[in-house]
Design a protein around this nucleic acid. Structure first.
Lengths: 215, 215
DNA sequence: TAAATTTTCAGGGTTTTTACTGATTATTAA
DNA sequence: TTAATAATCAGTAAAAACCCTGAAAATTTA
């Protein structure tokens, strides 16, 4: 091992970070070069420490892990990003991989799996637990309209119509003409959809619509 | 091991089949229950032997492996299909996974990998070599448009980037930030794309991008 | 019927996009 | 080495979108 794999830990739980640091530093081929407690913090630390692998939690205060992935990738495209999370849901997995993550490991996974994942990501490979891979492939190639998510986010029929048309790139005016309502009404529906889905950008709306099979 | 994994070999090369049969039969947990020399033959043998795992080559006389996957899946959805091929190209990989394959192993892979793959598929998991997984994820989430489609309308690389981002719902500002250029530059590229494609509305641009496989 | 939800619309200020025209600097091809 | 193509950016005015708050009908549910 000529060079140790440089690891940056990003998690808001100090205890977890400390544990991970001890764990990684006890490995001959890796070293923790820094820690960050938030997405914003991570962006700084990434520039400062130039890590090979960034280990990131999805749920963090402030910027979400998903957002952080994109920002980090922008800053240092060479750094591999490994999501370490307790969420087994495929929606997170999909979003993370789409945003540019190189791996996804559950917090309940075995230590050996985490090490394997870090080493794979350091080699520029993508690491997913077989079961996670199944989920991903399934969701990509053989996805059914997800009932689970539809239950939580309940769009009205009018909101659904507007979402679809927005995602297809139609302007508010076009939508208002198609639905025979005023532009103001369209704006209201759209903003309500964004509120319900948690989207703050039109692009997120597009992705949401695609992901949920609206378009 | 209560039940041995029942394997069906499908390949038009007799030597290879014989070698594989000996190899698998030497394993304590698997048994080759049949062989087939073509896709058509495979369909019969699948019904006859009810295998747990079908090992299939893509390139075969008559029905292609990709076609065979779909047909086999239709007949016996419980059977896992493992592609064993010399093709490293991601287009085959994508097609195979989309058609319903559960794994993809290169003929040049190590014996141990093949065993691992068969066992994973028998467990209803999906098996891909990490490098293959990378390819797949890359091609799904970070794909370049297909060359064939770009013949008629020739977009420059920058125009293509802008088109993709526009179609994904990003604002000019977001695009200018991602590409590190001014908004004015983005506007120019976008209007040029609209000129070339004949689109006059953003929605048409979205449809074009989808149709041409940009997104 | 009463309450909750859905659908509809408005005002107003800010930001962004659109649709022009025009132009400079690489890079590539002939 | 020209000539063509690609990529960059500017100005400007009108149109549209965005982001609020607020609110009245219509419909559905309890």
């Amino acid at each position: 091992m000529i060079q140790k794999t440089r690891v940056l830990l990003v998690d808001d739980h100090t205890i977890l970070r400390t544990g991970l640091r001890m764990f990684f530093d006890s490995q001959a081929d890796m070293v923790v070069v820094g820690e960050a407690v938030s997405g914003e913090d991570a962006l700084e630390k990434v520039q400062l420490h130039q890590p090979d692998v960034v280990i990131l939690d999805i749920s963090m205060p402030g910027m979400t892990g998903i957002e952080a992935i994109a920002r980090i990738k922008q800053l240092t495209p060479e750094a591999g990003i490994l999501m370490l999370t307790m969420h087994e849901a495929e929606e997170y997995l999909q979003q993370a991989m789409q945003a540019g993550a190189s791996g996804y490991v559950l917090k309940k996974a075995a230590d050996s799996e985490l090490l394997e994942a870090v080493r794979a990501v350091a080699r520029k490979e993508i690491f997913l637990h077989p079961a996670m891979t199944s989920l991903l492939i399934q969701s990509i190639y053989h996805s059914e309209p997800k009932e689970g998510l539809k239950k939580t986010i309940n769009l009205t029929s009018r909101e659904t119509e507007v979402l679809k048309l927005v995602a297809l790139g139609h302007t508010n005016k076009e939508i208002s003409e198609v639905l025979s309502v005023s532009i103001k009404t369209v704006e209201t529906h759209k903003s309500r959809v964004m509120e319900k889905t948690g989207c703050v950008r039109r692009s997120e709306l597009v992705r949401y619509a695609m992901q949920e099979g609206y378009i």
